[in-house]
Design a protein around this nucleic acid. Sequence first.
RNA 1: GUGCCUAUGGUGUAGCGGCAACACAGAUGACUGUGGAUCAUCUAUCACGGGUUCGAAUCCCGUUAGGCACC
Length: 370
Amino acid sequence: MNTGFGFEIKSCSGRARAGVFNTPHGELATPLFAPVGTQATVKSVTPAQLEELNAGLVLANTYHLYLRPGDEIIAQLGGLHSFMHWDRPILTDSGGFQVFSLSDSRKIDADGVTFKSHIDGSIHRITPEKSISIQENLGADIIMAFDECGSPYDQSANEIALDRTHTWVDRCLSAKTRSDQALFGIIQGGIFPELRKRSAEYLSRLDLPGYAIGGLSVGETKPETLSMLELVDSYLPEDKPRYLMGVGSPEDLVTGVQRGVDIFDCVLPTRLARHHAAITRTGRINIANARYASEQSPIDDYCSCYTCRNFSSAYLRHLVLAKEILGATLLTIHNLNTLLTLMNEIRQSILDGQFEKFAANFLDRWDKTI
RNA sequence: GUGCCUAUGGUGUAGCGGCAACACAGAUGACUGUGGAUCAUCUAUCACGGGUUCGAAUCCCGUUAGGCACC
């Protein structure tokens, strides 16, 4: 059923892996970072610019696209790849997380979730079957199981959410009809080791083409995040990709890969770009700061991106203060380039057997304030 | 020249005897399965000089600078 989604590990270094994941829209070299394109667009950049950045996988959202313009319209127009003119792989999130984080009111029961649209207040219902139906209309290469993400420190709520998430992944599998889409399950369990273990073991038995780790970086401490990652990775099958959802500062990529993560996505680089912050290899800078008013050098002298090759910090600051949209575009290009090239170097260092050295060197220079 | 009005942060305005408020601008920070959204913190010895009062941005006098009217 999942032929065409093979995962081949080329090289390991400790728990870090460098591999290749096959999809109907091409191979993905892992570990990888996926830019987020919630509404069928990575905000402020064109697909051509994403290709120039060598982005492999792009993430889009079931919740948003179902509400607007509607998954059936996208299906009529030939699916998401054609609609947004992106020929490389796409992953759609299931809508579970967004219902909890964006909708002002929602009611959850064993069967699904009823919620109010954040756009016009209209009432909608998403069940595991509905989520799969929407995601089949959208037509992404990787689709996600409908899950419930609990608050990280609430044990009893996490137990209930976990049972629902497990029942729902079974229902997602039964509802799934397309063989050209890989369904990933999502591990939940907050910061509770026994729940995380139970979730990882339950999903592993389903022999899915990939496994996501959800409910992290949602308020818990960094040490808690890392210890959950270590625990979960020890229960997951080695030969399937692991996807850490919603996580992606440069430091997170390095520490995540160290703990066996193959795929990351995160709004951080694109959101920060719209909020005046540039991500560099050593930390983060706010380009709106007065100190850059007449700074002739680029954001990062050693960066090879289009923005840094051609524009001064002073110009970027001017664009940002004048609220010109080009400012968001240029900062987005820079921030994505920082993460994507970092990931390429991580991968290469794994292939070269130098990853631990690379990671130690990176973390040594990293400014913890990001 | 005479008379009358006005003067409060960078800008525009409130306050009219009792801890100087609001909007925008500015500064600094936050943002991790996306709101180009938003939030937090900071930024004024009330034109100047005197006086009245326990207490003055507020009342009185003078100076300076604008505005209006008349000659």
